[in-house]
């Protein structure tokens, strides 16, 4: 037994993949080979250690099997692009103003009116500037929040609108399918049934004609065959008669010859 066979047998024994007969024989052999038995016991210890490994609870399977719901990716891209455009407009200080009956679109800083000359005053205290800046910042933050909220509302509204549109399309499709079904059942089906019936009648008639034709042909053939057989039989009879006469003549001739001698 080579090394690989010996290892294979050992593994079969260790994992109970041996027939009863083989196991008994192997155990008898092990009795004579204590070193191999020792090796098997060591393997068994390894197995006991391995059995100590706990089974872990897997985290949920992340394979996406459910159909996608919610806002589609395309709409998210569109919303993102729209938000980017609005942000850019805001950053460049885009304005729409009406002036003397017309609409003015402008970018950049607004044209300031010529400042009225002011009287020189003392420098504004730092605290006042800080307060002014803080107020301004707060105002801007509020505006941003309001924009954000407005966008969220618009997104939700768009989503709702999409859902509604989708529902309408689905309903419309269902209605159209039902209409087609109804039309088919009421109009097309009777027409098809009529056609089928007509086709059936035509086929029956054709079959009958074929049968008659076949019968006639068969009758003719039969008559011809009978006549042929009759003719053959007559010929045969005549042949037999002729042969008989010839034979009789030969016999008479033979008798006469014998008697003459």
């Amino acid at each position: 037994m080579n090394n690989v066979d010996r290892q294979a047998q050992m593994m079969d024994y260790l994992y109970g993949e041996m027939t009863d007969q083989d196991r008994r024989e192997y155990e008898l052999w092990l009795d004579q080979n204590p070193s191999v038995r020792q090796e098997i016991e060591e393997m068994q210890t390894s197995r006991q250690w391995l059995a100590d490994v706990e089974t872990v609870q897997p985290s949920p399977l992340l394979v996406e099997l459910k159909p996608q719901t919610g806002i589609s990716r395309a709409w998210l891209y569109r919303a993102g692009a729209a938000a980017a455009v609005l942000l850019a407009l805001w950053m460049f200080n885009f304005q729409i103003r009406t002036d003397q009956g017309g609409v003015i679109l402008s970018f950049g800083n607004p044209v300031l009116q010529q400042p009225q000359p002011v009287e020189e005053t003392d420098a504004i205290p730092a605290a006042v500037w800080e307060k002014f800046l803080a107020e301004h910042q707060q105002k801007l933050e509020q505006q941003l929040l309001s924009m954000d909220s407005s966008w969220q509302n618009r997104m939700v509204a768009m989503q709702k609108e999409n859902k509604h549109q989708w529902q309408l399309i689905t309903n419309n499709q269902a209605h159209q399918v039902a209409q087609v079904k109804k039309e088919f059942t009421e109009q097309e089906l009777p027409r098809l049934a009529g056609l089928m019936q007509q086709l059936q009648i035509e086929q029956q008639e054709e079959l009958q004609l074929l049968l008659v034709e076949f019968w006639n042909t068969w009758q003719e053939t039969r008559q011809t065959d009978l006549e042929h057989i009759d003719f053959q039989m007559t010929n045969l009879y005549e042949d037999v008669e002729r042969n008989q006469q010839a034979s009789e003549a030969r016999v008479v001739n033979y008798i006469q010859n014998v008697a003459g001698r």
Partner: peptide, 9 residues
């Protein structure tokens, strides 16, 4: 079987 044998060892 051989790989298992060496693995256990």
């Amino acid at each position: 079987k051989s790989r298992l044998y060496y693995g256990l060892k």
